[in-house]
Amino acid sequence: MEIVFWASALLLVHVFAGYPASVWLLARWMPRPICKKAIAPTVSVVIAVHDGAAQIAAKLANIETLDYPRQLVDIVIVCDGCRDDSAEQCRQFGDPRVQILEFAERRGKAACLNDGIAVAKGEVLLLTDVRQRLAPEALRELVANLADDTVGAVSGELLFEDVYTGFARGVDAYWRYEKLIRQNESGSGSTIGVSGALYAMRRGLFQPLPVATVLDDLLVPMCVAAQGQRVVFEPLALAWDRPSQQPCEEQRRKIRTLAGNYQLVQLAPWLLLPWRNPLWFRFISHKLLRLLAPWLLLALGLSAALLATRHALFAVTALGLAAGLAAVVAGRLLPALGGRLPVRLLTAFCYLNLFAAQALLAFARNRRLHLW
């Protein structure tokens, strides 16, 4: 039981503190700078849409505001089994650069990206979702990183706006922590994932995705890294989105995303092989061990409770975990308490780990995760 306690504790420390600290130190002691330059290759914006009529016109208008030569940009919209008038909205927008691909059957985002990129003309692909708003300089800042011959893909930075509730502020804090890790991964070599809301890559590096893929924003950059190119993070390329205000709103999206990590290993088992995956340690530490975190917390709590009479350390650990859980429950019952910084961070941490545990069950039960 002591082995279970210490193994769980050490792995949890590594996942949430040790690994982030290690890439932070690497980024400062052994930095790998990026040679950014103002360049202007041709760019294809590719957007997969399912029932996006309420948002697509605003998205196209937003793309028109990008500070990039208009004649160098074409736009491919892939309508994935839309039951609304998304395609008609695109046609009514009246931009001759827009090419629309319509599919009557809903197939999922990965299949749409494969088809959209197959007809794209640009040297660079800009992948973005219909929901988020992009800063005018976003494309220019992303492309500048591709002036460095070692860089194959670039992630933008996603920011949250309209953060009203304690839960939303907790999710926003967690996302800031996640972005800090990505920035340090980038500064020390490569980050393992990009933001699906906004990323750019060299078109020649794109490899068609398995059509069932959920996490294109993880498999695409891992394939880029496997081809010997860096995947970097650009904090000046901004996109804005709104977070879920309550756990029930976040639950479905987060479980699907986390279940996508299990699916990714099934679709691309080479990611588990250190001699094939150049970012193997980062992938294991940043992604896979996080999926184990809820089970490690459970093992830590149970072993600490069973060992509580043997040493004060075990008793303090068990009491600390119980107190943290009690604070989350109290925060849900008393909104004023739930808005306090420690409680809202604990609440976000608790729910995200609960969703991670549920993700394993979702993956086991649902083989059609790729359908939105």
Rank of each mutant, 00 (worst) to 15 (best):
M1H: 11
M1L: 13
L12V: 08
A17L: 15
G18M: 08
P20F: 02
P20S: 03
V23E: 04
V23C: 07
R28D: 01
A38V: 15
S44H: 02
V45K: 01
V46N: 01
A53P: 00
Q55E: 11
G81K: 02
D85G: 12
P96E: 11
R97I: 03
L101E: 10
A104G: 15
E105Y: 03
G108Y: 04
G116N: 03
A118G: 03
T128G: 08
Q132D: 15
R133A: 12
L146N: 01
V151M: 05
Y164E: 14
T165C: 03
G166M: 02
A173L: 13
E178Q: 11
E185P: 03
G193L: 11
V194P: 01
Y199F: 15
L205G: 03
Q207D: 09
V220S: 02
V224G: 01
A225S: 13
A226G: 08
Q229K: 15
V231T: 11
W240G: 01
R242C: 13
S244Y: 11
Q245N: 08
E249I: 04
E250N: 13
R252M: 11
R252A: 14
Q263G: 11
L264N: 07
Q266N: 05
Q266T: 13
P269E: 10
L273C: 12
F281H: 13
I284L: 10
S285P: 03
H286D: 14
K287D: 12
L288F: 08
L291S: 09
L292F: 10
L298D: 07
G301N: 10
G301T: 04
A305E: 10
L306N: 10
L306T: 09
A308V: 05
H311I: 07
H311F: 06
V316T: 13
T317I: 05
T317F: 00
A322Y: 08
A327D: 08
V329K: 14
A330F: 13
P342G: 04
L354R: 09
F355L: 05
A364Q: 14
R368Q: 15
R368M: 08
R368V: 10
